[in-house]
Amino acid sequence: MKIITVKNLVKTFGHIRAVDDISFDVEEGSIFGFLGPNGAGKTTTINILCTLLAPTSGHASLNGHDCNKESAEVRKSIGIVFQDSSLDKDLTARENLLFHAYLYNVDKSERKKRIGDALSFVDLEDRADDLVRKFSGGMKRRLEVARGLIHRPKVLFLDEPTLGLDPQSRANLWEFITELPRKHAVTIFMTTHYMEEAEACDNIAVIDKGKIIALGSPTDLKKIIGGDIIYIKTDDNKKAMSDIKKVIEADVSEKDGEIYLSSLKGDLCIPVIIREIGERVISVRMQRPTLNDVFLKLTGKEIRDETATPEDNIKEAVRSYRRRH
């Protein structure tokens, strides 16, 4: 069943076309990823879907309700983790969750239990009564995810959930997110800059300058890029190349003294190759396709690096100023 349908959605701010005629569906119980550089229109799309913005034209519906006209119904069915934290830092973790539970009219008999479960689910039980301003970035993110699930939404929106986290917390949070559909019967709609994260999605839409430039499963997308690239150096590249061709169906060629080939499942190819030409191999390395490669292929330009805008820096400075005073 389709839980989200978007048809010819357009959103303009003055002369900026933030979302430019996009259409897609999201299957219930799946993880859908929105992949794109800064300013692509990811957050704008989420804001329309979660009823905070009205579209300029086109349609978006969620759980059978129009996101613009039936705001109240849509709001009941969604949970959301915004790109910028929306916790109250002057309240404790538990108080933030309690606020949420009252706001969503969670039954009195259920409130305590759900909050307790949510806190243990994200491993924050011992910090439950600390003010949120004392939390690390990763803890805040986890708390926000827990909060988004308190009222048992049908769809959970995650706008760059791993932004600003170190690799380890990113991996932890990510593992946790991918388990959500199974554990909580929820559909995940998320945005990201990272190809590795997009890989765990069931479907991905690549968006740039408000337009969807590719749509499909990670395997489909990798086909566009050509998959992983494996580089092999041997003592006799000519002979090795013909041996590799015997065991693997792929275009194998030589460049700068290295054999290279692209494969959709590079990690599985390497053992096969090694088994065949084992002793002769000097070095092997594999390059995973990155979002950059998708972009390069589809738009002919590099994806901009994820950097904070000056405005973000100012906001952060003001926040830390307020924290200190």
């Binding site: 905070l52 709001r75 009941k76 109250d88 969503y104 009219n105």
Partner: peptide, 8 residues
Amino acid sequence: MKEILVAP
């Protein structure tokens, strides 16, 4: 405020 505005 977003937490409040997105609530039903």
